[in-house]
Design a protein around this nucleic acid. Structure first.
Lengths: 321, 321
DNA sequence: TTGAAAGCGATACCAG
DNA sequence: CTGGTATCGCTTTCAA
């Protein structure tokens, strides 16, 4: 075991060993309040169309409180025929800080629009199989990061009631809205920058781990200049750039005199290294903007899918180039 | 707008403008296959107890395929009376790399145990209110990061059918399993280390308020360093430590000669700075270990809650102390 | 103002 | 082997 688990002497279980009564339903509330289930529903949902007397309301509320009643979301949305769940499959690799921040903002923005955002960790499912697993949850919208979803997957999702499917990656998918991250442009920008600084033999550092190729390959394409030797390097991201820079320094290679290094993502920490790291800053969309896109798509599912470039990759020059 | 959205000329919508037929149900499959809904269920779930003739099976499968039928998870779990969803409320702040990695592992491990892990982004809900929102989903288990869940919240969750509630934080909550991260122990370890290295005037850097101040504060500390008269600092985490160290160096304060600095979390990047940062390494539980804890709790919900120390905080000495 | 009842979709029991 | 049918919890007409 890679970690230590030490049992802590625990006080006896504070929960009384009462009979494990089943979870209370609206029928239980109705019984306790002496009304019908319909009345319970009216009161708890504060239906405007029906007026319930104040004493009855109070009785219902007290009964619900006493039983600790919590409505059953599945039953409700089954009856309603729709939900307001936005499904977001987790990316296949642990997310970086940029993605984490983005997801966080996005969740907040959608919550404010009264959606429920759910990140779904589906391990090992691929393509259409994954799409079916997502479709079982009947989300009103699905936001898929990375590749792996084809037109058939999109069709499955739409046929199962998803009113908006948004892909988040390098190229659009038929039938789905697309948020395009122009990674090739990132590499291009980095290469241009290095070239402009007089570098002619430019190398590229990309991750080897499986799962990341999808992101690294485009950048490679963008930066694949005529790599002959090494007087300039574009790294997949700032972490790799920092690793490389550290390795170079340990070898006595001077940065940027002997080798210019530029990364990507503009990590805060990259500004602390000496020399401070040049980088390509990628601005992800604000959560609010994307949330509005999703909301628009949900309200108007018939519209032709939009494709948007999330293109704000700017070179930030510091001391390493 | 902080980012640029450029509409890309899109090919006309490839989806034929057919009538938006509603989502197919098992009844539709049954109709198309010329059998009853019961038979459809038997075939698609491959129920062992009932034998269906091979021709019928084929007809059902073909019908389901043709319609693009996907079962309705909500209806299924409503009928079944339980689900295998493990709910994991998203932490209130964007997660760090440690947490991201941990969640990823955990999701994978639970998936392998046939659970569905769902990260739930509930913005703005607090305490019992949040607990109720989670309870509406009727998860079989809930893993709550950080504080904010009290005994009443735990009770709500359990009464609504959660067979395991696990809190993940600094202190246990009545009725819930607890995974304790002994942050006090981390600080103790760091302090001991600094003391053993001969430091006597030891300061601590902790985040004050979320926002930009969190980054400016260490710099401020760096600027007024000489007034403080410290000779050793323990920072809340490696990021703060790196910020502080950078600020100190800019002020001409030598590390570790004039000031020893130690951080926490053992970020990979902390090894790249010069001088390389000493740190307190915190080993989070492997996803597998925690998944097994959850599984055990779900299978045996009556057991008294376990409290586990996730205590593998070890000082890693590098060059900054 | 309140209650009875019809479903939403899927499953499992019991007849045929 | 296959088909009715009751049921899960909830909402919402329609009647009273």
């Amino acid at each position: 075991m890679p970690y230590v688990m030490v049992q802590i002497p625990n006080t006896p279980a504070p929960t009384s060993p009462s009979a494990p009564r089943s979870v209370p339903t609206s029928a239980d509330v109705a019984r306790l309040a002496g009304v019908s289930r319909a009345t319970v529903s009216y009161v708890l949902n504060d239906t405007g169309a029906v007026r319930i007397s104040e004493p009855t309301r109070r009785r219902v509320h007290r009964a619900a409180e006493e039983l600790g009643y919590v409505p059953h979301a599945a039953a409700r949305s089954l009856r309603a025929g729709h939900s307001r769940m936005v499904l977001m499959p987790a990316p296949p690799v642990p997310a970086g800080p940029l993605h984490s921040q983005f997801v966080h903002d996005f969740q907040g923005a959608l919550s404010r629009l009264d959606y429920t955002v759910v990140q779904y960790g589906n391990c090992g499912l691929h393509g259409d199989e994954a799409a079916r697993a997502w479709a079982e949850l009947r989300p009103v919208a699905v936001l898929v990061p990375g590749p792996g979803l084809g037109p058939r997957g999109v069709a499955v999702l739409k046929r199962s009631g998803a009113r908006a499917v948004v892909t988040f990656g390098t190229e659009p998918v038929d039938g789905a809205h697309a948020l395009l991250t122009d990674h090739a442009g990132v590499g291009r920008g980095a290469a241009r920058h290095l070239y402009a600084r007089g570098r002619r033999r430019i190398g590229v550092v990309v991750p080897e781990e499986p799962g990341l190729e999808t992101f690294s390959a485009p950048r490679l394409d963008g930066a694949r200049w005529r790599d002959l030797g090494l007087d300039g390097v574009f790294a997949y991201n700032d972490e790799y750039a920092m690793l490389l820079m550290s390795a170079l320094q340990d070898e006595g290679v001077r940065v940027p005199e002997d080798a210019a290094v530029i990364g990507a993502d503009d990590l805060m920490l990259a500004r602390l290294l000496r020399p401070r790291l040049s980088t390509v800053r990628i601005t992800l969309p604000s959560g609010r903007g994307l949330a509005e896109l999703v909301d628009r798509a949900v309200r108007n599912p018939g519209a032709t899918p939009e494709s948007h470039e999330l293109f704000d990759a700017t070179v930030v020059q510091r001391d390493s180039t």
